[in-house]
Design a protein around this nucleic acid. Structure first.
Lengths: 219, 219
DNA sequence: CAACACTTACTTTCTTGTAAGTAAGTTACT
DNA sequence: AGTAACTTACTTACAAGAAAGTAAGTGTTG
């Protein structure tokens, strides 16, 4: 069983490139197992042993690669998110402007097909609110960044200014709506139509912003 | 003969309360400690010992009253919610119809003053999504009930029918928005104005429903 | 050979839950 | 009213297990 590489050496910033493709592959297996277990159990109830089992090693082996459970969580989130501490991951940058809004509805639709990832982000985001949670910075920064790009997108498509409080509130609401829908959907998938509801929210908010807004643009 | 007029004296007896009342009081202390600790740590990371400490007894004492950690959680939720397993609790039934919508914004405003309770419900609701979580039924039923009353309220104030998918989606969105805003607010209180955003959401959704809706009303 | 990728074994710390004891309070009966 | 029988509200002590993390060893590989 040799090295059929999928990209052995990578530009990994300041971190040294992994020695072999096999090592990268094992790390990746741990990250995937971590995502699965964190999403099924949440951070606190997840155990390194279960993650290690699924990745085919012992919990000490996991610690060898990631140092601590907290660091593993952070690496798992970045791995899934895209920024790819490791070799790669789907890393597509978000579209900007109006395209972002359509992209969101699409993404929500895709998400109904992978409850695992949805659950991981939902549970971990809420959990991160707890004092001294290791993923707190990650989720706070993520939310702030999303609010920014969403405010820009909403502003663009309604002729408003991205700095207006109402626009920023709307941006927060879009994220909030998506997060909250996920909770309800995970609890009761048949009662909640995530993509349809997301579209409704976007339409309602953009209509409201457009109607109430553009100072000189409307004429 | 214990002067029955003033109740049974303990060594340091000071209460004019009969034994059963004192017991209820101790149980209540545990419920309040439980709410605090569950909200600070989440269910899994909360420990009976810490709850017991705050209530002034040992963890075995807590188990004497509530049987198990899971049962304690459920009793805490019901206690805070109102249904009052115990003697009391503020059990005010939700207003109905349009009044509910105003009530929501008010409640959100009040909530900014008590992050503890907000955090408890936010974190536990998201956590309940995990397999075999003890509060899963509680939160699923709660969400379903809220969607019903909200759909009715939205229908009433927009001339729509509470059974229409769009109205039900809007109801789910209101809950989702509130839940999601709480997460963002807990992570970054200065960046998120919960009450203002909540009002915006309600306005945007009711306008959208009213505009798009009443089959015979529009002309 | 030396670094790496692990494993086994162990330590420490916590966890919930149980068992059994005790000091009060309550009830039943005379 | 007095007392015995019982219940309640706890406590201390323990059981049994899981958890993360450490240390040290082993085999592979570049």
């Amino acid at each position: 069983m040799a090295d059929e590489a999928e990209g052995p050496g990578r530009t990994a910033g300041q971190h040294a490139t992994p020695r072999s493709a096999r090592t990268a592959q094992r790390r990746r297996a741990v990250l995937e197992a971590g995502l699965a277990v964190f999403s099924e159990r949440g951070f606190h109830k997840a155990s390194l042993s279960e993650i290690a089992d699924r990745a085919g090693m012992t919990h000490a082996g996991v610690l060898h690669h990631f140092g601590s459970k907290e660091q593993l969580l952070i690496d798992v989130l970045r791995f899934r998110d895209g920024s790819g501490v490791d070799g790669d991951a789907g890393t597509r940058p978000l579209p900007e402007g109006e395209a972002l809004l359509n992209h969101l509805v699409e993404t929500v639709g895709e998400n109904t097909a992978r409850p695992g990832v949805v659950q991981a982000f939902t549970v971990l985001a809420a959990e991160s609110v707890l004092e001294a949670h290791p993923a707190q910075d990650y989720f706070r920064d993520r939310a702030a960044g999303l609010r920014d790009v969403l405010a820009a997108a909403l502003a663009e498509s309604t002729g408003r200014d991205a700095g207006e409080p109402e626009v920023r509130d709307a941006a927060a609401l879009v994220i909030a709506g998506m997060d909250g829908l996920q909770i309800q959907w995970l609890l009761d998938p048949e009662e909640v139509a995530m993509p349809r509801a997301t579209r409704l929210m976007l339409e309602a908010l953009t209509q409201r912003l457009a109607q109430n807004g553009p100072p000189g643009t409307t004429g």
